[in-house]
Write a protein that binds this DNA or RNA. Sequence first.
RNA 1: GCACCCAUAGCUCAGCUGGAUAGAGCGCUGCCCUCCGAAGGCAGAGGUCUGAGGUUCGAAUCCUCAUGGGUGCGCCA
Length: 581
Amino acid sequence: MNLFSEIRALVVAQLNALQADGLLPEGLDFVNVAVEPPRDAAHGDMATNAAMVLAKPAKMKPRDIADALAAKLAEDARIQTAEVAGPGFLNLRLAPVLWQDLVAAVLKSGADFGRSDMGQGKRVNVEYVSANPTGPLHVGHTRGAVFGDALAALLDFSGYDVTREYYINDGGAQVDVLARSVYLRYLEAHGQDVAFEDGTYPGDYLIPVGKALKDKVGDAYVGQDETVWLAEVRAFATEKMMGLIREDLAQLNISMDKFFSEKSLYGTGLIEGAIQSLESKGLIYEGVLEPPKGKKPEDWEPREQTLFKSTEHGDDVDRPVKKSDGSWTYFAPDIAYHYDKVQRGYDELIDVFGADHGGYVKRMKAAVSALSGGTVPLDIKLTQLVKLYKNGEPFKMSKRAGTFVTLRDVVDQVGADVTRFVMLTRKNDAPLDFDFDKVLEQSKDNPVFYVQYAHARVCSAVKKAEEAGIDVSDAALNGADLSLLADPAEWAVAKKLAEWPRLVEIAGRTHEPHRVAFYLYELAGDLHSLYHAGKDNAELRFVQEDNAAVTQAKIALARAVAIVISAGLGILGVTPAQEMR
RNA sequence: GCACCCAUAGCUCAGCUGGAUAGAGCGCUGCCCUCCGAAGGCAGAGGUCUGAGGUUCGAAUCCUCAUGGGUGCGCCA
């Protein structure tokens, strides 16, 4: 139940009626007619811009349209008042019974309140994390992981059929480096002294992998040339690293539906097939690229390469798919991977990248546009850097990796719930400050605490009602007489709840899960306000020990808030707190 | 040099894909617990939305240019 769409439907119906009455010309387009919460609550519960949007095409004065529409709307029982204001806004005040109905609807739908069929079951693939399998996940990956996961949940809640996917970059040179690094640890496990030169991974996390390799093959690779062991060790190490990454993700309660291996594209004709598909569209040619302007690479020489004419699909320059020696560039398997996703029949694709891949967006979109003939939209969300702080100081150490802060360093210190919530308190394309102390602080300027506290507060109110001997079971609350919720302060909370389905829709449409976090913060604030109002006005307290019916109505409202908080936190992947400690 | 992202209160940030007097937290100022709901609450001050043009009934939001910051720019993925 979305009250805003309901009232918008009413507005449109009455506009049609005005046309039938000859008060509005025929043939008007109502798509731009919006029903929104007014910025200022004094203007009413909802406002519509219908008169202003239609004034021009109808060749009428906005106020004349607004007056006519107001008269029509006022006939409906749901509309208490309809007033024309400002340049032609129509401010609507809704009948109180609607707020009561809304609370009842929340209780009835439970966690599904706000779920919509906006996506109409369309298949959408959300690719995120996709970190190289060369070590544990670090903070940067963590933000992408949390963002992607919340976006996937949000789309699921909005009626899409979502696949959560991880692309394993196990085909390139970096896994050779990994294999050589593991080999060094393997030698070390045999008691040899080894040196980690530039271009190898010195992290401690490879020590157990080296030992495991020793356990598996004994000394078979000792003293052997890399031609003997490289392929084997690479496969072994990649598998171990993916195990590590899966465990890291599990720390954040993330589980992917699919892991797609880059390696599986090689030697199977898949890359060739994807390139061929582009070639058949005349988008592949042999050519020489212009050198980049400004700072030129030292060893620049013009070379002929196989190029993808990405400029025909919005890119700035054409991109190489083959190196001058004839082998594939990293871009080629990426094209093949996205071709595979297109062929798997997704209606929409979403990639979540780190901001350092920003230069990659246009060519990837160009590739998907070309491969799908423009039928499959690709949205690429970039997550900006996370700056870590501790005691107000920039924080850079890592216990495990020596060089970077890992996902586990963060989760170990503050927990999965806090990590997830905080990572979503910024827009994805804005840098994020993550202060280890602030995120654990119990105060209003810590959104995690504030939202969790609101939920816990409701739990505690329910408990208190039970202790007073009042039946606040689900059945009792469903049957509560909500007309006893008569105070505007209580309606205000219900109004905020009414915005939830609309908020979900907007967040889903814009692929912006952070909106959920901000909404929850506001809703929590409203709940806390109502609670505190009970200090001055005892009639507003949730628990009225001598009046079971009133208590049930108030607890019903509080429970409705908890349900929405819980649903919202569910989308963010955060567990609601039953009590604060 | 080019492309993309960003610029909103002293600080950190929202801002509904064009709506009314631009919001929140922190900080600041002022009130509020001898008692029943202060891990605080209420109220107030604080803004030319970086600048200049443009589009229109209407712009923080869209377009152009400028300024400042971030990211990236053939044989690394």
